[in-house]
Design a protein around this nucleic acid. Sequence first.
DNA 1: GTCGTTGCGTTTTTT
DNA 2: ACGCAACGAC
Length: 752
Amino acid sequence: MTSYLERLNPEQREAVETVDGPLLVLAGAGTGKTRVLTTRFAHILLSGRASPGQVLAVTFTNRASREMRERVAVILGRPVEGLWLGTFHALCARMLRRHAEYVGLTSSFTILDTDDQLRLLKQVMELHRIDIKRWPAPGLMGAIQRWKDRGLTPDRITPSEDTDFAGGKARQIYGDYQERLRQLNAADFGDLMLHIVEILRTRPDVLAQYHRAFRYILVDEYQDTNTIQYLWLRLLAQREGFPSNICCVGDDDQSIYSWRGAEVENILRFEKDFPGATIVRLESNYRSTAPILGAASGLIAHNEGRMGKTLRPGREDSQGDKVLIASVWDSDEEARLVGERIEQLHREGNTLSEMAILVRAGFQTRAFEERMITLGLPYRVIGGMRFYERAEIRDAIAYMRAMNQPSDDLAFERIINLPRRGVGDVALSALHSRARADRVPMTEAVLRLLADGTLKGRVRDQLGQLMATLERGRIGLAEAAQGEQIAPVHIRVVETLLEESGYIDMWKRDKSPDAPGRLDNLKELVRALVDFETLGGFLEHVSLVMENDENAGADRVNLMTLHGAKGLEFDNVFLPGWEEGLFPSQRTMDESGNKGLEEERRLAYVGITRARKRALISHAANRRIYANWQSSIPSRFIDEIPEEHAERMGSTSLAREQLRNAPTVFSGQFPLMAKRPRAIESWEQPGRAPRSDTLAPGTRVFHQKFGYGIVKSADDNKLDVEFEKAGFKRVLDNYVQQVSEGEIGADIGTGS
DNA sequence: GTCGTTGCGTTTTTT
DNA sequence: ACGCAACGAC
């Protein structure tokens, strides 16, 4: 009966069994956080303390909600109904629909997406005659969102909290924007929380209703809560004369979302907010090897103001490889190194899906994608293309696939009853057995069942129409392929397909608030077809870019940002681009100073702790940023990793040498302060006046990226140079240095 | 409305 | 260098 408790270690068990009163579970990376949360949920239900509807369980993402729901069902051995389990926004929307009239909305209010929000705000700004160029709407949108994150309605904004945005009119515009939303019976994402908190604050009867309803509250990722989410939780959890049965799980060391309003202080303040709180630390890490934990712990120890937590290896077999730190010449070499290492690990029997390249910023993925393509290594970029994950897009693509390839059963099954064509379980299983018996695709099975009269009435008519529509489309495509017709034929065919099949109409008839957005998405999808000569080509592209049903399980290297990797784990993790200015990001440090730096360090900690077995950190001495090459010095985080857990590789000493010769700027805009390599005057400072000495043809020069070469011709400040290794290039004379014959110089560029 | 040109910005992302 | 957004022209 309580066997689920026996699979826990003592700390985990304490976290599950401390059911009454406030509890904070500080769960380090890889210490079984989700297991504790789900087991606790199940334990509350199984011990008879509450019914499913009396537990409020909150997560940040839909993915986390889904996972919790599934895992609770596994422990209970059955799916559970009537749960208040969901994201902050989903739960608030659910509550708000019940009490919408208190904030001047009706229960059928529309939830606006980012585009609508911005469009609306722009309208309001124009009414205020704001120069939209001088004060871009997204900036004000951000300010409004941050106010909402902090629970500030327009009337609560004091002049000191007002920004000077739009010449001091920001607060006023915010008020008008809220008024417009109300007129439209609409709420933006921030409003979902803001309104319900307002209601709970001002309507004791409503609050009391929820106090009675929820006996237990569970919160995931507490370190990521913003002020309004915290206020909401506190209102629901604090009840006069009753203990707060709130359990928050989180890790202050993994707080990486302050830039979108998250307040680490919420978790640091937990004991003050909920007096008598129990704190349980989960420190046994079952994920990673000892060196990886040592590296991560040593790094995060450089942060101040932590709650304090040490990851202990919890595995029997915790010894393993040291963390590799590679120094390379430039970003190309970095991509090459990572590619080679992936190939090597793959040869040794490691699966590609157990490898991940984690980058600081999205644009860094490109270099690795190109490398993967040349090496023929399958990869997937995660987080880049969420567009293709939307239901309506997947549906439409299923239509295209079913048309393009009649044997595509997965696609056909997805759309056979969408819109509803009266194909129920009976008809579907009849189709399945016929297809299996005759060893033909589903589409063919449909035709046969239509022909022999098994399908009757409405189903027959509807499916007959669907088959005819698909067939007409195929004919259209075939004609497009044969005739020398202009490219957009396949677009027309797809449009017709989606129209005639009734799929578009399905969404037009749909009265739900997001239906118009979905129609927009469908238009967008059709528009994307113009970039392809044929429908087949488009579908090929989509299948590569989309995490669809078939290749979700395929063996591919994962490529994503560090933020996107939170909560995931891999055997082998690659962490490229650890350079001052890039990681830690210069911009974060400029904007948020030491707080920003600490958040970057937490991001580094998150990165390292994703690895189960091996981690490779790398930095390049030269990186192409936008148009030109920039030199950069290794990230300070590299120096913060304890030597005993690290193994240096690549051209470390060469990079150190290069460091001494490097310019002091990373982006050409911000001076680097950490280390002060002295710049050699002349060539490495871009943007200065053209050099006065002329480089005559025949002069031997050195270029930071291309190496040594001979000037072939000079045109003003542009030189045509034949480089020894890089070949013929046109470069600006600012970027080359004259080399006298016989001077060897440090030819550090070619270290392989 | 739709197309083409110009100009600016360029980290991280969920709901 | 590149992409996207905003504006002006048809």
